[in-house]
Simulated assay, not measured.
Amino acid sequence: MPDLVPAWRRQLKWFVLALAIIVADQLSKIYFNSHYQFGELREVIPGYFGFTLLYNPGAAFSFLAAAGGWQKFFFSALAFAVSGWLGWNLLRGRFACLMSVAAAFIMGGALGNVIDRLLYGHVIDFIQVHHYSDWYYPAFNLADSFICVGAVLMVLDSLRNPGK
């Protein structure tokens, strides 16, 4: 019996997941941007974990943060390009389930950070992890977390399905 649902409609769930990630990311950033002062740190587990409010004009680990502003457009264009490629492959049904989840995570996270760059000129970060004494892991946000988890899922999928 032929499948009556077009292939692209079966893939919409992944775009809904990406949109849910964007919404959760933006709501969390609105909360921290309105309830915290810049640089304020409230420790949840003293010495290990807390919430803060920091702005990152660069990319991961503040890469190119002091580059003069052009990086906002570069990282936004890169996020649109990667998200477009992933979205196109999702629509075409080229990914298995695990890779589709990974693509949705990366698209949602990347576009969540693009919204910050375009609205504010920087990304809002608020999760702070301490590792040792006064050494902190760079602050990050939900979008960053979804991008990282998505990348790990992509690696796992490539290990499970070599050659695809």
Rank of each mutant, 00 (worst) to 15 (best):
A151E: 11
W85N: 08
S83C: 05
R94V: 07
M99R: 00
G163I: 12
D157A: 04
P162K: 09
P6R: 06
I124A: 08
A96F: 01
F74V: 10
F146M: 15
S83Y: 03
W70A: 10
G68D: 14
I106W: 02
I147T: 04
K29R: 15
A7C: 01
P138I: 09
S133A: 10
V16R: 12
E40W: 05
F75I: 05
H130L: 13
A66Y: 15
L156V: 14
F105V: 00
D157L: 02
N56D: 09
S145P: 05
F73P: 01
V129C: 04
V123D: 14
A102S: 05
M1T: 10
V23E: 02
H131V: 14
Y48G: 08
W88M: 15
D116K: 09
N33G: 13
Y55Q: 15
I115Q: 07
N33E: 12
N89S: 05
A143Q: 02
V155T: 00
S158R: 00
G87I: 04
S133R: 07
L4M: 14
V82A: 07
P162R: 07
R92K: 13
V129M: 04
Y55M: 07
F140V: 03
K164V: 00
E40G: 11
A104M: 09
G163A: 07
A66S: 14
A151I: 14
Y31C: 01
K72G: 03
L4A: 13
G69M: 10
Y31Q: 00
V44S: 08
Q71M: 12
A67N: 12
A24W: 02
A59K: 12
A143R: 00
A104W: 03
L64T: 04
C97K: 13
W70R: 14
A143E: 01
L142W: 01
L118S: 07
A7E: 09
F146W: 14
G69E: 08
L159H: 01
N89L: 06
F15G: 03
I22E: 05
A59F: 11
F61R: 11
F80T: 07
I21F: 00
V152R: 04
G68R: 13
H130N: 14
I21W: 01
A18M: 04
V101S: 02
H122F: 09
A96W: 05
H122V: 03
H35G: 03
N56M: 13
N161E: 00
A65R: 15
G163W: 07
L119V: 06
A151H: 10
V114F: 02
A103F: 06
L98S: 01
P57M: 11
A96N: 04
P46I: 08
L118P: 07
P138F: 05
F73C: 07
A79R: 11
Y55I: 02
H130W: 15
L156Y: 04
A110F: 03
A81M: 13
G39W: 11
N141S: 04
S158G: 05
S133Y: 06
Q71R: 09
L156I: 11
K13G: 10
H122K: 06
V23N: 05
